[in-house]
């Protein structure tokens, strides 16, 4: 040790000791995607302070563990995320460097939506030549309403676990949500009858759970393989394949490039439609209910 080391150590020590810890009563929630922020809002409304890490305009596959996210994760009481490797590029790193015990993967403060349900599109083969495939299946689970309800129930249980003094409140909120949600599902299923058995080309497999629910057939993707941007060659192939019998829609999300969808729409005479995909995806999709309504409305209008 020389003369420099001791002062440095003492500065650090004093900073550790003088750190002021905020003792706000609210549970701090780090929601990885807007849909989970909205679900927490439904289930725990006034007991939580929600920070949503990404927006509908961002691709949750491609987020960086930037300083603002580290600061938020450092103070989170629970992290509510998708899992299934969707956030593999940033979430494991955030957890690891946050120095926060509560939200580590083995703690009740770490909640993964895809772990609560059976996922779709599980690949039989894991090979990167097939693109950015998710070994645990399609992670975009929030547009399957029954799956979402299962996730909501697990999440409610989790809130009960980390904040057991408010058990009654969480149970009540969940039951209320469940009733409204089941009623809404009935209504949506009625309204969506005209789009049953319709066909769609999608930018990426973002709507697999919606399609599974409403019986919409995915006939192709604009991405040649998952995670790789649409190429001219691939688009030309789609044009050739679908010009004789165009699908009902070409769908893309707010974080995806509209150009390839619009180009193909002109060539094969099918409407290119931007769906909100998640909360904030357009100005009408402000919560889970309006997200579903707006998505179905847009498909219905396009069918006419």
């Amino acid at each position: 040790m020389n003369r420099y080391h001791l002062p440095i150590l003492s500065i650090i020590t004093s900073l550790f000791l003088s750190a002021s810890f905020n003792t706000s009563a609210n549970i701090r929630v780090f929601a990885c995607e807007p849909e989970w922020g909205a679900l927490v809002e439904e289930l725990a409304g006034d007991k939580v302070t929600i920070f949503v890490a990404t927006t509908a305009q961002q691709d949750p596959h491609h987020i960086e563990a930037r300083p603002s996210l580290i600061a938020k994760m450092r103070r989170a009481d629970i992290a509510v995320c998708t899992g299934a490797e969707l956030e593999v590029g940033w979430l494991p790193l955030l957890l690891r460097i946050s120095g926060n015990k509560k939200i580590q993967a083995n703690q009740p403060g770490y909640f993964e939506a895809t772990s609560q349900i059976e996922t779709l599109d599980k690949p039989e083969k894991l090979d990167r030549s097939l693109g950015d495939v998710h070994a645990s299946g399609n992670p975009h689970v929030h547009l399957g309403p029954y799956k979402l309800l299962t996730i909501a129930e697990s999440l409610k249980d989790r809130f009960v676990k980390i904040d057991s003094s408010q058990t009654h409140y969480y149970e009540q909120r969940f039951n209320d949500f469940k009733q409204r949600w089941l009623a809404a599902i009935l209504l949506w299923e009625q309204r969506a009858k005209p789009i049953k058995n319709s066909q769609a080309i999608v930018y990426h497999k973002n709507w697999a759970y919606l399609f599974d629910w409403l019986h919409i057939r995915r006939v192709a993707e604009l991405e040649p393989i998952p995670g790789v941007p649409p190429s001219a060659a691939h688009l030309a192939k789609l044009k050739q394949q679908f010009a004789p019998s165009p699908p009902n829609f070409i769908l893309y999300g707010p974080h995806q490039n509209a150009k390839p969808a619009n180009w193909l729409a002109k060539k094969i005479d099918a409407p290119a439609i931007e769906l909100p995909f998640t909360i904030g995806g357009n100005k009408n999709a402000v919560d889970l209910f309006s997200l579903y309504s707006n998505t179905i409305d847009k498909l219905l209008i396009a069918m006419q």
């Binding site: 490797e85 593999v88 957890l95 993967a105 083995n106 009740p108 070994a135």
Partner: peptide, 16 residues
């Protein structure tokens, strides 16, 4: 692999 509070396998990891 990381196991969540319900005892299910976590899927966050970069690899199975």
């Amino acid at each position: 692999r990381p196991v969540d509070a319900k005892g299910r396998n976590g899927k966050i990891g970069g690899n199975n």
